[in-house]
Design a protein around this nucleic acid. Structure first.
Length: 480
DNA sequence: CGAATTACACTTAAGTGTAATTCGGTGCCTTAAT
């Protein structure tokens, strides 16, 4: 059967989107593939469709439990029953059952941590997989080195002989990220598909402040006068809470979102935002991955993100529907030092390496450091990982290098934040691409007619307000 | 690391100067004790 026929029969689409066919063909030829496609451009089809051609299971490594759940549900909506999320949501007996019948599933979603468990490894070693997918593969680069070391360990598992082709999917396309993916997963001269990173319908605004506190008034004023839905990114949980409170006081339908909020509430807030019952999410960088909402009109950064990759991912959540959207970066000089601290604050230090060794010499479990509160759990896991790979001296150099690398990334973001040149050109350039055409209302430095954009967006907002029949129906039923 | 806030010491008692304290992101998984 032709690929197009399967596309129509299984998924009900009439044509491929850019990149999908090339990527799928390469997979079917048995090649490793790195596909960098913008979010919302049908990345998941790149492994879903091969799942119906390859006669063996497809294993998808995913960074978030919520993402796995979403994708399982999506496949079920397409009528697929042989799909499972192998993760900590399963009870012990469910997990035993799933593992026992693992080869029966067509799509198996799992986390790096779960994938590396001995029982899972044992089972997989007896199976023949058709394809391994690493979804949101930039997590290898973004999280592997200093946050979730199991993202690096999966590479060691991949390096074994007799593995099926690997498909790495991401929307973040710097050379460093691509190199980290290729090296860590030991990909064999992969086929690389890179999509244009520029998003011409997102206007890149910037406002410079002398003092961080001056931003408060600007934000309240701006959000009152312009249309959502929008995301306001903050640099800390506490400030996210404070700002959401202030916006609510000002009559805005807003909610805070960060990792300190329980999973259930987070799910609820996210759903309310998607359903249009909330206009603004005031969030840390915990918010966004896997969010499927096409009509986000604004993304505001109260503080500069810690690197350009994050900035790009975060603003990229706006305007997926192709209509005009606004990204505004609020910058002040003190943001730079704050970002530097935040991104290196939880890294282990050479002092911790010495202490680890000292405890070992005294025949004490190094994990004692956790109980004393000398080190966070994350930092300990990272330290433990590297000491398994390298000597003490190498680890010290490594940690030092990691911190410098993070500082460098902050400086790159600072450079783009402060540039007097075209912001879009700088941004696209950072991803190793050239800006072919400047859109109208390109960026702060090229000139943005805010009034025009806001008027257009407010008009659109009014149009939309006629539509939500669900809430109107609810009102009618409740008798108003 | 650094800024902002609070605590405290000092001395013709209410303000000044300095020291101490506090705060800062991202997620898997597990398991013991409620």
């Amino acid at each position: 059967m032709e690929l197009e026929q399967i596309l129509a029969k299984q998924f009900g689409y009439t044509a491929f989107r850019p990149g999908q066919k090339e990527v799928i063909e390469a997979i079917l030829e048995g090649k490793d593939v790195i596909a960098l496609l913008p979010t919302g451009m049908g990345k998941s089809l790149c492994y879903q469709l091969p799942g119906y051609i390859l006669q063996k299971p497809v294993l998808i490594v995913s960074p978030l439990l919520s993402l796995m759940q979403d994708q399982v549900e999506e496949l079920k909506r397409f009528g697929e029953k042989r799909v499972v999320a192998l993760n900590s949501f399963l009870t012990v007996s469910e997990k035993r059952y799933v593992l026992h019948f693992l080869e029966q599933f067509r799509f198996i979603f799992t986390s790096p941590e779960m994938l590396l468990q001995q029982q899972v490894q044992d089972k997989l070693s007896q199976m023949q997989l058709g394809l391994i997918v690493v979804d949101e593969a930039h997590c290898i680069s973004q999280w592997g080195f200093d946050f979730r070391p199991d993202y690096l360990r999966i590479g060691q598992w991949f390096s074994q002989a007799n593995r099926p082709p690997v498909l790495a999917l991401s929307a973040t396309a710097t050379n460093k990220v691509v190199n980290d993916i290729r090296d860590t997963l030991s990909l064999d001269s992969p086929f690389e598909f890179l999509y244009n990173v520029d998003r011409s319908n997102i206007h890149l605004g910037r406002v410079v402040f002398e003092d961080r506190e001056d931003k408060v008034h600007w934000i309240i004023q701006h959000i009152k006068e312009t249309a959502g839905p929008g995301i306001l990114y903050m640099s800390s949980r506490k400030r996210a809470e404070q700002y959401s409170e202030v916006l609510i006081q000002a009559g805005i339908r807003a909610a805070a979102y960060h990792a300190g909020i329980g999973a259930e509430d987070r799910q609820f807030i996210q759903q309310q935002f998607i359903d249009g019952e909330l206009d603004w999410i005031v969030a840390t960088n915990a918010f966004g991955m896997g969010i499927n909402k096409s009509d986000i009109r604004q993304v505001i950064h109260e503080t500069m993100p810690a690197n350009v990759e994050n900035y790009m991912q975060e603003i990229g959540r706006a305007g997926r529907d192709g209509h005009p959207a606004l990204a505004i970066l609020l910058y002040c000089d003190s943001d730079v030092e704050l970002a530097k601290f935040v991104v290196t604050g939880d890294l282990p230090t050479s002092g911790h390496v010495d202490r680890y060794q000292e405890l070992l010499n005294q025949q004490i479990q190094p994990s004692q450091m956790l109980k004393n509160g000398e080190l966070s759990e994350t930092a300990f896991r990272v330290l433990d990982y590297w000491l398994q790979q390298e000597t003490m001296e190498q680890v010290k150099v490594r940690l030092n290098h990691l911190a410098l690398e993070k500082y460098r990334a902050v400086n790159e973001m600072e450079k783009i934040s402060r540039t007097k040149d075209c912001i879009r050109k700088q941004l696209v350039g950072y991803f190793g691409q050239e800006l072919l055409k400047k859109p109208e209302n390109c960026c702060e430095n090229c000139g943005i007619n805010y009034d025009e954009i806001n008027k257009a967006r407010l008009k659109e907002e009014k149009k939309i307000e006629m539509i939500p029949w669900k809430s109107r129906l609810k009102q009618l039923l409740m008798g108003f």
